[in-house]
Computed example of a mutant assay.
Amino acid sequence: MPLEIIHDEEDLRFYVPLGDEEAEMTYSYTEDNVLDLDYTFVPETYRNQGIADQLVQAGLEFVKAKGFRFIPSCPVVEAYAQRHPEYQSLMD
């Protein structure tokens, strides 16, 4: 089920509220046009439902739309990029 992913550019994260909890993917800027996608978290109750993939996809679509590159520091992001070759050319 597609979720409404919220991009909080001030807090440098993509997140989705899940009841009293949140799932999130955080990032930082290492250079002007390079994002380090560094951390993904999904509460245990909500794991294995594709939420992490949706967060990563939202982040990578942001990278693509801005003409940026990304560093997959988070293993979840790295695994997603391996499974989706359309984003590999954006990897730094």
Rank of each mutant, 00 (worst) to 15 (best):
M1Y: 02
V34Q: 03
M91E: 11
F70Y: 15
D20N: 13
E31N: 10
M1T: 15
E10K: 15
M25R: 01
L90R: 03
F41A: 13
A58T: 06
V56P: 12
I51A: 01
P17K: 04
Y87K: 04
Y39N: 13
P85S: 14
P17R: 04
Q82W: 03
L37T: 01
E24K: 11
D11R: 15
A65E: 15
L35R: 09
E44M: 08
Y87F: 15
A58M: 04
V63W: 02
N48E: 15
E61V: 06
G50K: 05
Y46L: 08
Y29Q: 12
Y46S: 12
P43T: 09
Y15V: 02
V42Q: 05
V63N: 03
S89R: 10
V56N: 10
R69V: 00
Q57A: 11
D36K: 10
I5N: 06
I5Y: 08
V16Q: 04
Y15C: 10
E21H: 05
L35W: 08
V77K: 03
F41R: 12
C74P: 08
K64A: 13
F14Q: 07
F68Q: 03
G59D: 08
N33G: 00
Q57M: 09
L37A: 10
A81S: 11
A65K: 14
H84C: 03
D32C: 00
F70N: 06
L55K: 02
K64L: 10
F41I: 07
G50E: 09
E4S: 14
